[in-house]
């Protein structure tokens, strides 16, 4: 199968403070994979994901999505590429004062007629699609409440529904569960797994805990100080590898 996403020699240097966040990263992702990126805080996981859809401009290197060079895309082309890549976030990144449905419909902004969106009008079928997606993540009854009235797990599910609205081919999740408690974490991860298996959406997610990565990932990429230190199957991570990724003092923490 052809590679859906190819990352070549990706490097990111933050000018403020001369920090090398990503150091010559190369990997590729096959369609339908569930790739988990692990590593300590500050190892460059978030930067990597944001460089793929260019929320952060990479300093050097190329990103190809379906054979199209994302790093060279400009304006409209970049927007069309972005709408194929859904993203969900650690802090959910919902507009807290807007209703749940408005938040979900924001996922369609890349598709709809811009003039209609200027007066907050969305096509009928988009609204129906939004309600359907909310139903899918189990919060259809909350469609008209304000987003900040929801619990953390519910907010993250709104985030998933928003990403679903994009009808994505690739879903990126930036530590989707690190702001949630263990039980809610699993329910959110299950939705990602469901999308991966039922809809065939490629998923790239960064995670803090190795146990979650082992449970859900089909492949694992480990970052340390902006470099790839491990790439392979979840089962290949043994004690020595673990120490290498997380440092000598690390202990296993299980999330059940």
């Amino acid at each position: 199968m052809a590679d859906q996403l190819v990352v070549e020699h990706l490097t990111k240097i933050y000018e403020r403070g001369d920090i090398l966040a990503l150091d010559d990263i190369s990997f590729s992702v096959v369609k339908g994979e569930f790739l988990v990126v692990i590593g300590l805080s500050g190892s460059g996981k978030s930067t990597l994901l944001r460089c793929i859809n260019r929320l952060i401009e990479p300093t050097q290197g190329k990103v190809y999505f379906d054979g199209v060079d994302v790093t060279a895309a400009s304006g409209g082309e970049l927007r069309r590429l972005r709408r194929k890549m859904g993203m969900i976030y650690q802090q959910f990144n919902l507009v807290k004062r807007s209703s749940v449905l408005t938040n979900v419909l924001a996922g369609r902004l890349g598709y709809v007629n811009p003039w209609m969106s200027a007066v907050h009008r969305f096509p009928r079928e988009d609204i129906e699609m939004g309600l359907k997606n909310l139903e899918r993540v189990g919060i259809s009854d909350q469609a008209y409440t304000r987003a900040d009235n929801l619990s953390g797990g519910q907010q993250q599910r709104v985030g998933i529904a928003r990403a679903l609205m994009q009808e994505p081919e690739l879903l990126m999740a930036d530590e989707p569960v690190s702001a949630l408690d263990p039980a809610t974490s699993h329910s959110v991860m299950k939705y990602l797994e469901q999308m991966n298996q039922e809809d065939g959406v490629t998923v790239i997610t960064s995670l803090h805990f190795l146990s979650l990565a082992r449970r859900y990932g089909t492949r694992i990429l480990a970052l340390k100080d902006g470099k790839i230190v491990f790439e392979g199957l979840p089962s290949e991570i043994d004690e020595a590898r673990f120490k290498e990724i997380y440092g000598e003092e690390a202990e296993h923490v299980e999330v059940r």
Partner: peptide
């Protein structure tokens, strides 16, 4: 950031975000 990532225009980001 989230709205920009859905492929929205700059002014749409301002309006919705």
């Amino acid at each position: 950031e989230a709205i920009a990532a859905t492929g929205a225009r700059r002014w749409q980001v301002v309006l919705y975000g």
